[in-house]
Structure formats: structure tokens, C-alpha cells
Simulated scan of single mutants.
Amino acid sequence: MDSEPTTTFTIGLDAPLTGKLADLGLGIKFSAELAIAKANAKNTVPGVRFVLDAKDDQADEQIARSNGEAFVADPKVVGVVGPLTSSGALAMAPVLAKADLAEISPSNTAPSLTWGADYRTKGKTRPYPTYFRTVTTDAVQGPLLARYARSQLKAERAVVVSDTKAYGSNLAAEFATAFEEAGGKVQLRATIEPATTDFSKLVRQIAAVHPDIVYYGGEHPEGGPLSAQLKAAGVKAPVAGGDGLHTDGYIKAAGPGADGDLASNPGISVEGLASAFTFLDDYQKAAHPEAPGPFGPYAYDSTWALIEAVARARQVKGETGSGAEIRKAVAEAVPDVDFFGVTGDVSFDEYGDTRNQVASIYQVQKGSWTAIVPIGRLRDL
């Protein structure tokens, strides 16, 4: 008979729970709660009860760093899910790595988090040994959409815009490089500051070069208004971007002209996956105020990966392991985690990246996102 819980372990979670990106952050939080509730109900790790400590970073990297320091200071925290943004992860990862505290993100896509800042010129070097992620990177989703634009949309001329954050600038660079490698031409590169609302000067510059596609590396609070202002100025080219645009908030901000716009996602479209049916049903039954969004399923799998790692660590350290000893054992166990989750196979390579290197492409059709490439691999386009 399984033992009743005698030990409580905390899984930390960092995401924007308030502010402009709260819809994504809350989807992550509620999904992690489902995983923990299931583990507790089934006594998945005998003798252990899990609790979630969800902290709000407001999509601010300095707050993310402070939250990371708070997780490190709490001896009951055995692992962390998050952050949402790559900028937040770049601030938090060194803090957690120094404390041997495992971190699994359901949404970070900057390649430098696992390959190092100089991966383009010096090759891959893993900077943070306790950092992992369940989604693929901009090195996959950026080129995938670029190749789709060339092969399927027959786009020849592109404008590439990005914000100044790690996520947006990396994603834009990956798209631009792949678009030109596929025979297209980037006619204009531009950078905007986060929180920009008036794009009138940029819109005039874009309109003057008559692009076939406008790619925006950044998030929906800026991407949506940019699309709306481009369409209002008569620019008919679709706006495209990464997972930062793949939200209902983008469609609301972009307005009726959003139909035809595109977004990639660093993972697969789970709506048609049998493995996701139970998760989606449970999420709906819980009547959360926000949808799981593109990262909820990956947050569930990130949380479950930590739970699996705790189970492995307990086998190694025994039921008396706690504090720094158990969290180090958990971090050492994550690379051996291998299970079939909501999003498919969940396991990690030597850099901490998911082995499930697929992405998807969505298009706004009749006011909602529709998967047009549910499962995409670079070799297919």
C-alpha cells in the first residue's frame, strides 16, 4: 500500500500573473496546478505532497531574478517551472544554477539559454547546467516560418521588425537569415522599443518598400497594434511572428484586419492530440478565467517532469533527503526523465533542450487562430 504523504515539497513557478502578458502566465500557472493536483491525488511520489509557489514577475527580468533568489532561499523548493520570457530566464537561470536548483521552462525560445551566447560563431556550449525546456527554440520556429513563407506563400520581399528583448531580437534574426538563405530578400530591418504604440513612421517606411510579408519578432502588445496600423495604411502583406503573437490578445489588438496574419509556435498544435484530450477536458472542467494558451500544455509537462525527477531523486537519496541535498539530486535526475506527456515525448538532450524538435504554424482565419502546419520540422519545408 502506498504511504500517506509525510513530506511536503514545493515547486516554484515564475510567470507574469498580472500585466499585459498575464493571459499567457495564468495559462501556465493553472496548467501547473493541474499536474500537481493529479500527482497528489494519485500519490505519484509515495510519501510526498506537492504544493505550488507561483510568483508574479510581470514580465520584468529584474523581478524574475528576485523571484529566483526567493526560490533558492526556500529549502522546500525542489524545482522551478518558468519563466515565460527568455529575458526573464537569462536573469533567473544563473541564480538557480548556482544553487543546483532545476528549472524547466514551458516557453523560453532563445537558443542562447542552452547553447550559449556565442553559439553562432563558436559553437554550442551549455551555460546553465540546471536549465531545461519543453519547447523548441527560435532556431527552429523562426526558420520554419521563413521557409513556409518562401515555399507556400511565395513571398519574395520581407520586412523584419523586432523589439529590443532577447526573445524578439533572436527570433527576428533567425527568420531573416533563413528567409534570405531560401532565396528571399529582406528589404528593411527595424527595431522598436517595448511598449511602443505609435508606429506611424515605421508604417510609412514599410509601405514604401511594398513587402510580401512583415515579420515581427516580439510580443502581442506591440505586434497587434503594428498589424492594425499597417492594415489601416493599406499595407496588405500579412504580419507574421513567433509564439509571442499567438494569443487572443494579438487578435483583439490587431482587429478585423488580422485575418491572414501568421504565427509560429515552438511546439505542436495539441488540439488534435489524443494525449492532450484529458488535459484539455480537466482544464475546461476547472473553469479557469484564462485559457491554457500555447504554453499551458508545456507547463503541465514541465511540472510533471519535475515530479518525475523528484521520484527518481527519492530513489537515490531515500525518504530522508531534503534541502540542498534533494534539490541537487532532482537537478541531476532531470536529464534521465523520459515519459509520454500531454505534448508527446518529453525528454532532454545534453544541452537541456527538448528532444521533440517540432514547431507549428497558425493563421488568423475568421477572427481566430487556426493551425495550418500542426506539426512542422525544418526538413519538411
Score class of each variant (00 low, 15 high):
195 A>G: 09
160 V>L: 13
215 Y>K: 03
331 A>L: 06
164 T>G: 05
307 I>D: 12
149 A>C: 11
12 G>P: 08
301 D>L: 11
196 T>R: 11
323 G>D: 08
223 G>M: 05
293 G>E: 14
16 P>T: 01
281 D>G: 00
270 V>R: 07
56 D>H: 11
149 A>P: 03
153 L>C: 05
39 A>F: 03
354 T>Q: 13
9 F>Y: 15
205 Q>R: 12
284 Q>G: 02
220 H>G: 00
90 L>Q: 12
94 P>V: 11
376 G>F: 08
2 D>N: 14
31 S>T: 09
45 V>D: 07
281 D>Y: 02
8 T>D: 06
49 R>V: 06
284 Q>M: 00
324 A>H: 07
37 A>L: 01
97 A>P: 05
269 S>W: 07
276 A>V: 12
316 V>L: 07
313 A>C: 08
94 P>H: 10
242 G>C: 08
318 G>Y: 09
289 P>Q: 10
160 V>W: 10
312 R>W: 02
175 F>I: 13
39 A>N: 02
247 T>C: 04
131 Y>A: 01
253 A>T: 07
186 V>Y: 11
114 T>N: 09
11 I>P: 01
233 A>V: 07
150 R>I: 12
315 Q>H: 14
220 H>V: 04
38 K>L: 06
30 F>N: 15
298 Y>M: 05
161 V>Y: 11
95 V>N: 09
49 R>Y: 06
297 P>W: 13
78 V>W: 03
140 V>E: 14
157 R>F: 00
5 P>K: 12
313 A>W: 12
250 Y>C: 13
323 G>Y: 04
171 L>S: 06
